[in-house]
């Protein structure tokens, strides 16, 4: 199982989200890694009443092993069903400027 599939499986297990997208954005970045940058859009009502910081902490915790082992960037868009309908999409991630590990 590659990293993308692992992320999808872990998030599905942990949150049973209404909507989940895990997008590999590694091609937008420098370096040889093919699975280094991901964007996650996750929609579930478990986030209701929680601040963004708390939501991100929940997701980061589930993906702890991945964040410690090779994933360089994780863009996170955490929404409730209501917020998802209102917003309709998630913002585009920036191109890499080449810094860092």
């Amino acid at each position: 199982m590659n990293k993308q599939e692992t992320i999808i499986q872990k998030l599905n297990l942990a949150f049973s989200p209404e909507h989940l997208e895990v997008i590999n954005e590694s091609h937008m970045h420098s370096g040889p890694e093919t699975e280094s940058h991901f964007k996650v859009i996750i929609v579930c009502d478990e986030f209701k009443g929680k601040m963004l910081l708390a939501r991100h902490r929940l997701v980061n915790k589930v993906l702890e092993d991945e964040l410690n082992g090779g994933i360089h960037a994780l863009a996170l868009h955490t929404m409730t069903m209501e917020e998802w309908f209102k917003k309709g999409n998630a913002p585009a991630s920036p191109p890499c400027a080449g810094g860092g590990k």
Partner: peptide
């Protein structure tokens, strides 16, 4: 602050979040 990624923004000593949260705010 038990936060795995960069950047990190602090206001009054409190972590407010990384890129996505800062931009949403």
């Amino acid at each position: 602050a038990d936060w795995p990624t960069f950047p990190q923004v602090y206001v009054n000593g409190e972590l407010i979040g990384g890129c996505d949260i800062t931009l949403e705010m």
